[in-house]
Amino acid sequence: MLTPATRTAPTPPRPAAPARGSATARMAALGRAELTLLLRSKASLVTVVFLPSTAAFAMRGMVDRLDLGGTGLSVATVMLPAALAMALLFAVYTNLVGVYVVRREGLVLKRLRTGELRDGEILVGSALPALWLALAQSALLGAGMTVFLDARAPVAWHLVVLGLVIGMAMLVVGAALTAAFTRTAESAQVTYLPFLLLTMGGSGVFAPRGLLPGPVADVAGWLPFSPVMDLLRGGWTGDLGGVEQVRAVGLALVWTGLAVFAVRRWFRWGSRS
């Protein structure tokens, strides 16, 4: 049973509490376990790895047929940001909706909450492998597509990085929010669709928003993922002005903040509560 050394001690097993572990260490431990689980789930691997790359390259034909005259964009400046967006949307958002729902229904989240992890650490720690994979994929897709299209490197790197970071943060919170309104693992196969379709159609993932009819384009500019697309595309075109950059970051943060608020309000940690 217990080791003799601890068994014979007549004093309490731990007179003084040891130094509290760091949040980083806790999230790393959780992230490592989630990575193992991801690598063991074929369905998740398809969503995370196969879907974004296939979709990114398959849209070439569609983009070729777009009339880009007047938008100031080329096939490359449409496809490169789109490829990164696909990596974010599938690897982070779609994947994590499933992860959060399955862990909740399996009472894993409830179990994790009995320990030292804080609520935010549980959500972020579980998302770590998805985030790393999304980053790796963005790098690979970006590089591969630059070669494939014989395109130039981004003009404004900082906007690409900003777009990726803000996009990932928004989609992690968004996935948690979608999971809050998803009852079962089975319904998690469809509940991600509304946001995904709205984003693909409205936020200018494939076709730039400039191609939408005027009033529709104005409204679409306020959608959550639109500023992320503006930042990513601005990174390649270099024509996103200072005011526009601030507006994009501000709008994305407002949406993310609202989602954080909603998650704190509605996220459920166990299937019973």
């Binding site: 040891p18 431990a29 689980l37 399996g106 994790l112």
Partner: peptide, 26 residues
């Protein structure tokens, strides 16, 4: 110790324990 475990079923015993150890002080 909860009434129901709540462990991911595809992790091994050691992986589960290691994960929990990483989240536990001392």
């Amino acid at each position: 110790m909860l009434q129901e475990g709540g462990f991911p079923t595809e992790l091994t015993v050691a992986e589960t324990a290691r994960m929990w150890a990483g989240c536990t002080s001392g």
